[in-house]
């Protein structure tokens, strides 16, 4: 039997911030979380949600091909898609999908009684917030952009050669990029809001429903209040404007150069709030 002593070189702590360490930690969290977000049981609901608009556009595409009498005027079809995008994809599927994905990031861990593994590991909690947010963002952006892109593919394929010409030679490509961009921004904005709700509230349903109500009645709100919402900025970016109905309060739409940085700034602010909140977070599994 022999005893040996291992000598470890004394490394001086670096004076700057350990960005590379945080980067590696975020990478490790991402690997765990992305797998969970895509392959976990909770993902099934999101897959079903994301598949809905694709199936709907496939049905529309089949109907256009089936019924010659069906109007396949590009302008009109664009308006139909704009309404479908805003009414179903943006206001329902992305909203509820993001609510599910981002609220589950922390609340789901509490329910599974596994959050303490993260809290016991030598990771700064702010790093954990960023890692989890980015993982939720990857999941939501991938699923919902695929959903939007799939719907657009069926839209243009359904219209046949005129649709393909419109896509490749007309305004179709620009519009498609616009819709995909709005989808990404919606995931960024709603994701941050729902993650912070999941951190602040033990019962996140009521605040989520209040936000849904606020976003839903956005068209009725006076211009100043309209700006305190995510949907206003996303609506302003829509490539094909959608009428908000006869009861809507008319407000000047915010230009893209203001609405995109505005949303990103809001997201950053919400993430900072989430970082402060998680530092004081204590786990009480018994209450769940």
């Amino acid at each position: 039997m022999s005893a040996s002593t291992e000598v470890i070189a004394d490394t001086k702590p670096s004076l700057g911030r350990p960005w590379s360490l945080w980067g590696r930690q975020i990478g490790a969290i991402l690997r765990l979380e992305v797998r969970k977000n895509f392959l976990g049981k909770r993902a099934i609901l999101i897959y079903l949600l994301a598949a809905t608009p694709i199936l709907l556009m496939a049905a529309l595409s089949a109907e256009i091909n089936w019924q010659q009498s069906r109007n396949n005027n590009i302008g009109e079809i664009n308006i139909i898609f704009a309404n479908l995008y805003e009414g179903l994809i943006l206001r329902t599927i992305i909203f509820f999908g993001c609510a599910w994905i981002f609220m589950n990031l922390f609340r789901g861990e509490v329910v599974d009684r596994s959050l303490h593994y993260y809290f016991l590991s030598p990771v700064r909690r702010e790093v954990l917030v960023v890692g989890k947010y980015v993982s939720g963002l990857i999941a939501s952006v991938v699923l919902f952009t695929v959903s939007t892109a799939g719907s657009l593919v069926f839209l243009y394929v359904g219209l046949g050669s005129s649709g393909m010409n419109y896509f490749f030679e007309g305004a179709g490509k620009g519009q498609a990029m616009g819709y995909l961009g709005i989808t990404v921004l919606a995931c960024v904005g709603y994701g941050a809001v729902f993650m912070v709700i999941g951190l602040f509230f033990r019962n996140p349903i009521i605040p989520a429903l209040l936000i849904y109500g606020w976003e839903f009645i956005n068209f009725l709100l006076p211009p100043v209040l309209k700006k305190i919402s995510v949907i206003h900025y996303l609506h302003s970016l829509a490539p094909v404007p959608v009428s908000e109905g006869p009861f809507a309060m008319v407000a000047e739409s915010t230009p893209a150069y203001l609405s995109i940085p505005g949303l990103l700034l809001m997201t950053a602010a919400v993430l900072v709030i989430a970082s402060f909140q998680i530092r004081r977070m204590e786990i009480k599994y018994g209450g769940e």
Partner: peptide, 24 residues
């Protein structure tokens, strides 16, 4: 909480899907 959300979601999402299918 997820069960409560599912109850709400079922009515809200089915409403949106139903009207969109009708419209489209």
């Amino acid at each position: 909480l997820a069960a409560s959300a599912a109850l709400f979601g079922l009515f809200i999402i089915s409403n949106a899907i139903g009207f969109t299918v009708n419209g489209v």
